[in-house]
Design a protein around this nucleic acid. Sequence first.
DNA 1: CCGATCGCTGTAAACGTTTCCGGCGAGTCT
DNA 2: AGACTCGCCGGAAACGTTTACAGCGATCGG
Lengths: 371, 371
Amino acid sequence: MGRKRLQESADGRPTVHTVAARAGVSIASASRVLNGVGGSPETIRKVRAAAAEVGYVPNAIARSLQSQRTGLVALAVEDIGNPVYVAMMRAIEAVVASSGRQLVVHATGGRIDNEMTLLRRLANRYVDGMIISPIRVTDDHLGALAGSPVPVVVIGQLGADAPVDNVRTDSRRGVALAVDHLLATGRRRIGFVNGPLDTVPGAARDAGFRAALARHGIHLDEDLVEVGDFQYAAGRAAALRLLARASPDALVCANDLIAVGALHALLAAGRRVPEDVALVGMDDTELAQMMFPQLSSVSLGSAERGRRAAELLLQRIADPTLPPRREQVPPSLAVRASSGTTLPAARPSADPLDGPTAPTPTHPSSEGVTA
Amino acid sequence: MGRKRLQESADGRPTVHTVAARAGVSIASASRVLNGVGGSPETIRKVRAAAAEVGYVPNAIARSLQSQRTGLVALAVEDIGNPVYVAMMRAIEAVVASSGRQLVVHATGGRIDNEMTLLRRLANRYVDGMIISPIRVTDDHLGALAGSPVPVVVIGQLGADAPVDNVRTDSRRGVALAVDHLLATGRRRIGFVNGPLDTVPGAARDAGFRAALARHGIHLDEDLVEVGDFQYAAGRAAALRLLARASPDALVCANDLIAVGALHALLAAGRRVPEDVALVGMDDTELAQMMFPQLSSVSLGSAERGRRAAELLLQRIADPTLPPRREQVPPSLAVRASSGTTLPAARPSADPLDGPTAPTPTHPSSEGVTA
DNA sequence: CCGATCGCTGTAAACGTTTCCGGCGAGTCT
DNA sequence: AGACTCGCCGGAAACGTTTACAGCGATCGG
């Protein structure tokens, strides 16, 4: 007598057929009241009761197949351990959740092939859209992005002509903010610990650093520039290499992980921060504020970029015919203890032991000074 | 002449019908060769060619509906910003990916209602299974877990009789490791900065701390115990409160975020670490090694727990009839600079300035000493 | 040389929803 | 009173796959 099983799913769970049969109505009616559209008071009552009795829960997959949307949005970033991406993710998650969708996170490790695989997989429609923050951009990327069957928005620099929704910041200007600040507080031998130059952010920050120094008419001593990758360990190692051959009085780091590594290297080498060496990180993650002394950091508006990217994506999902849009989030500088003291440039040695002092924030938030 | 569109999906993308028609075979044959099962050399050639020409990519949703599996696995943790969960997630992701599945990450914020919503949503089958690490466990949880229509494994303590796959550690013993180590290195006034007592880990760590002191016959001064939540800011605030009313010579913290907060509080208060106050964190995250001095930390084997949980889950997905299993990962202590010096307990003041020294690691990895 | 076997194929039925469409009874307007 | 609208209902067709089943020609063994 196993013929009535047409009404329930393979594993014995109730389907819309089950509740329809139990309520004595058609599956069409059952589906309608379950979706809250139409139905007479009487059928509504019967269907609701039946659904409750059997513990009916609609099957998300079947619904997706019918509605052509999964309710999922993907986020692809290089390294989920980097707090900047955590911040971005939180912001994205907030707006995505407000549209009733869920976020799927992918860590690409910055590997091009991983990213391409992800982009190709988009074609099978397992998500409604994707936000990707590629660290390197190739022609293959651009092709895949332009030809993507589902909406994609890119966080980060992209070719000017790429017909893709894009939210970016100006990290060249961000580096300039740091350099200006350090020069203004009396630093003269400013070092730079960067990430790989073959990445988009690495190249931009390198260009920004050189341009900023040039603008001030300062000759760049190449011994003061060091490159690793965007991780803590590499930042620490790179800073150690730099310290072994030069003695900067300030260090700009291409992100906060590197800055934390550099701080470690400086303290281990017996340099005081900020008295001997001022330190400025980048991305203004929560990590910067956890350090002692707290790190100055260039905010690239990660949360804001994430929020905007998510909004762009939702808009495009709603209306795929929108023209490609581009948004820009300006950088700002949060000055904290790690660069908070002005060097006694001309001053004779006064206050040799004034220690790390808190900056006087004029920033609306508690984060520091916006330059 | 729009009748041939039966062959392509609503948005004009090719379906199996498209390639079948183009190859001049039935959809069954097309599907077979696309799945690499069966087909004569000639049909294989034709179908492959047709698929390539039209750029066919199978629709994941339709496939899921048919196969009753989505290829997704969910992970629910309290706070994705906590590096311990990042480590766990990386480990899980690795084994999950090796089975061809993808990971969906949810941040619950430790809120019971969020977790219950997640658990209930499981019933709609949008994932093949779930790993959850609840910070508080209620009867509702247990009910939802036991009655879950898809496999679930829990990371963390759970009632002994709960019929749910479970991997745990012994954080009471973890705290004991820290206390033993501090006592052995001459510390006497050991403070404790914990998370909320109404959480499972908070309660366990509190019990562990008290038991460890009792075992050594030490009376616990309640002034040396402080509670916040498991975040950095709360840890820092709690440590400041504690320092304002007591002067410990060592501090055990319920996780690394708290420990980093405490380090900040100690340094800001002018206490030297480890000379004046030794510091031991918990979870042994990468954060512990980023600090200066590097933090000793009790490893609770997060990566290992994640790995095992993922394996349990995959096994259960493969065979849902398995009996509930329980695995335990032992804690260990990584000793680093923040507690690396032995106090000159009886010794007169020798080497007043020996500074933070690196421990001599006997641990197989570079992480420190296993106690 | 004929029946069994085997490899391949196409038809059609699933998977669980949503939704189009025609039917039908009750009301409304003229 | 008849034509019309209107709300509700059920049958059936989607959505795009995989797969059970049956048919069919060729090969093989006796």
